[in-house]
Structure formats: structure tokens, C-alpha cells
Design a protein around this nucleic acid. Sequence first.
DNA 1: CCCAAGTCCTGGTTGC
DNA 2: TGCAACCAGGACTTGG
Length: 311
Amino acid sequence: MPELPEVETVRRQLGQSLLGLRFVSVERIEPAMLLDCTPEQIRAELPGRVVEEVARKGKFLVLVLTEDAYLTLHLGMTGHLLVARELGSGAAVQRGTGGIGAGRTEKSQPAGAEVSDPHSRFLFSLRLSADEAADRHEQAAPSVWLEFRDMRKFGRVQLSFGSPAPRLARLGPDAWKGAWDIDYLRVRFVGRRAPLKALLLDQSILAGIGNIYADEILWAAQLSPLRLAGTLTLEELSRLASEIPRRLEEGVRLLGCSISDFVDTDGRAGGFQGTLKAYGRQGQTCGRCGQTIVRVIVAGRGTAFCPGCQF
DNA sequence: CCCAAGTCCTGGTTGC
DNA sequence: TGCAACCAGGACTTGG
């Protein structure tokens, strides 16, 4: 499922694909996935605006648009953002080099026809303006499809004006690149009797950690997910504070974790799943101490850890 | 039928 | 005793 490293992978690719492009039309909307805005608003306000920046906080993506508009996206559990480029005047559609549409060049179809996936929830069309194309010495203005697929509809899309979605203000610092340190964790954990894993998953403390990376961070820090957060020693907090960015960085380096069905904007899988030490390994041997990884429920989530070396 | 899981919401509990 | 912070658990979603 998309956590911080997966969302960061998508953010970087969207930056490459969408920066400077102008929204042309909105071909498909899933009303159930809209938050605090209507399909009519999307159709009326999005076309004409240019993507100025693709930002991320925690697991949220923010397309910063011209005239103070913000399109905030959350991929939920099963969300994918896919980008397809239509070359020149509709000669061909090209989508990346791997995964879905791998290495193929397809004949162009009428708008939206080539993205007929049953879980396609949003479909946007963007284009480089003629002037901008000339500035970039491109022969024709390519149009680009941005598609949001999401089997489970846990994803969310929100268009807002003046500032990104209000929910972003409730997030804690970014777990990977945010301004936080051991002392921040100490202050946020003191007196708390919730299990450590519950606080790692709390986006208002640190933003971006989900179930997979939580288990991996705890294994790396040799801390039990069941430990009451307020009982951590300074030495333990120190291990935790160094493993959080370290594991997330590894996920970013490997272009995300495709243990379930994460793919990037070209439909390619990531590589972090090959490095998993705890998540999903219940019944298997711990790579550090040799004991058997067990699975429990913590904070309502399936949790794998090693009782032999995580305290 | 139960499970997966991110976020929001509710209702009960704790402790100052 | 009052009240806010805290914590657990359910709703939502749909395919395996």
C-alpha cells in the first residue's frame, strides 16, 4: 500500500511528467472519493490551471496550481496514479517502459478509451500550451492523461483555494525529511500508554509511516510494537529516531514497496519488498536472532515482529 | 464470512 | 467533580 516512499516515488515522477502542463479537461470523476468539493467545482475550476509544483507531505500529494488552487490527492490503500503521454497530434500513446503497457506504443483512441480499467476513478487531460511548447523547442504540444485508479475507493481527491487541504495542517512533520529529532519524539511519547506502533501510525505525530514501514522500523530498532510508548528510554528513542528516516530512505531508494499492488506512474513495481525483515514474515525465521516471527494485532492492524530480539 | 488497511469518527476511560 | 486528553474499536471499501 502507498506509504511515504511510494508516494515520494510517485511525486518525483509526476514532477517530471506534469510540471508546466495545463489542465484541459476532466473526463471522469468518482464523487465518492471527493472531499469537501463537488464534481461541478472540479469541472469548472480545474481546466486552464497550470501545474506549478508537485509537493508531498506524509502520504498526501499536492498539485500546486496557478491562481492559488491546490489539488490534494491521497492514494488510500490501493490507489495508483498513471501517466500516459500522447505524442504530437494523436499519433500514438506511450506509457513508460515497464509494467502496465510495458514498452508498447499504442494507437491513439478517442478520449479516455485507452484507459478502460474498471477501477479507473478519475481521468484528467493536460497539455503543454503552444507557446510553452515553442519555448521548449518541441514540435507539437503533447497531451498527457493523468489517471487515478483505486480498487477500494479509499483514496481521496480535494480541490481547494488559498491553501492546501485543511487536513494537511493536522499532520505532524514529515517522517523522512521533516524537522524533528529525538527530543520531539520524547515530548510526544511522554506519559503515553498506547503501544509504540500505534503512535508510529499516528499521522499527527509523524506523517508518512504506514503498517509496512512501521513493522520494518520497529524490527530495525529492535523495539516491540507492544511497548507502551511512554516507557522508552533515551537510548531506545535514539535507535527509533535513527531507524525511521533510514528505513524510509531505503524505501525511496528502491522506488517503493510492491508487497501488495503498488506501481509507479509507469506501472512499474518497486523493490523494497525484497528487503522485508518482519512485515508478512510471520512463521518464518528472524534474520537477526533465528527465532520465529509472530503476528499479533496492534492498534487494529496486523503486526509482525520477532519476540526474540524486539523488546 | 473474514481479512487486508488509511483515515475519520464515536464512545468510554483516565488522570490532573 | 469537571473536563480534556487519551485510547480502543468501528465504518468505509471490495477483491482474495
